[in-house]
């Protein structure tokens, strides 16, 4: 009770102080989880992607005249390409981290305590919101699979993430059946509407590779998101406890 009251004291904690606390926790947690995600992707996901690109580019043909070996030479490690991927994966997770910690901060004013253990649940919810729910309609695509128009897919993807995130929020923080009922509708609606699908299955990539890619993409996402939640919760709590009472300069 006592520490919470000091923390919430408004005059000592102006909006800029709060902003820098959110950004610090979110960016550090996001960059760290993003780096781990990027390394996991390089090790587990990228070989499947490169393998699929051999079919996408036509160097290999699935069900062609001759049987193609499942073991291909994927070429040397491409530094500039892979470093760009590390950079962008860290950017994506930094974005996730900022959004996650911003939401944590909002719930804390309403009396919710955020800790590392709670952070794990936040991370799982984030994974469901940003990866699992969209993947239910649009499985993570390996290059070369047939797919509908990219704009339509992006709109459905974003709409599904927003609806699912809102639904999970209502389940956790909503009170009463009106909120929970709305949550159920929000979770199911995008999938009843249905994701944009291709007109024909004309992709040249073997289904074995596409399935492996989807599984690995989701698996790495689950690992990185739980780590992101854990780190975000831990850093946020640490920032909140260690935050010195700011002095007017």
């Amino acid at each position: 009770m006592m520490p919470r009251m000091t923390r919430v004291t408004p005059s000592a904690s102006p909006a800029t102080e709060m902003f820098s606390r959110i950004v610090t926790s979110g960016l550090i947690a996001g960059a760290a989880a993003g780096l781990i995600a990027a390394l996991l992707q390089l090790w587990f996901v990228q070989p499947v992607l490169l393998h699929a690109e051999l079919y996408e580019s036509g160097q290999l043909t699935h069900f062609g005249a001759e049987t193609v070996s499942a073991h291909q030479n994927l070429g040397p490690f491409e530094w500039s390409r892979n470093m760009l991927s590390v950079l962008f994966t860290m950017m994506v997770y930094a974005g996730y981290g900022l959004m996650l910690v911003a939401l944590m901060a909002v719930t804390e004013v309403q009396g919710n305590t955020v800790s590392a253990r709670q952070g794990l649940l936040w991370g799982l919810a984030g994974f469901v919101t940003m990866q699992l729910a969209p993947a239910f309609g649009l499985a993570p695509e390996v290059p070369g699979v047939a797919a509908a128009d990219v704009q339509l897919r992006a709109i459905w993807w974003l709409g599904t993430a927003v609806a699912t995130g809102l639904a999970l929020w209502l389940i956790v923080f909503g009170k009463g059946w009106a909120a929970w009922g709305a949550a159920i509708i929000l979770i199911i609606a995008p999938h009843l509407i249905g994701a944009p699908q291709p007109d024909s299955y004309a992709g040249p990539v073997p289904p074995e590779l596409a399935a492996e890619f989807a599984g690995r993409s989701l698996g790495v996402g689950a690992m990185a998101w739980t780590l992101l939640g854990l780190l975000s919760g831990w850093l946020w709590q640490r920032e909140a406890q260690g935050a010195p009472v700011p002095q007017a300069a």
């Binding site: 995600a37 990027a38 992707q41 996901v45 990228q46 992607l49 390409r81 892979n82 760009l84 991927s85 962008f88 994966t89 994506v92 990866q131 969209p134 993947a135 649009l138 499985a139 993570p140 695509e141 390996v142 290059p143 797919a147 990219v150 897919r153 992006a154 993807w157 890619f213 993409s217 989701l218 790495v220 996402g221």
Partner: peptide, 9 residues
């Protein structure tokens, strides 16, 4: 590669 790996369209 990042977009594919994190499941964005």
């Amino acid at each position: 590669d990042t977009r594919h790996a994190v499941g964005f369209p």
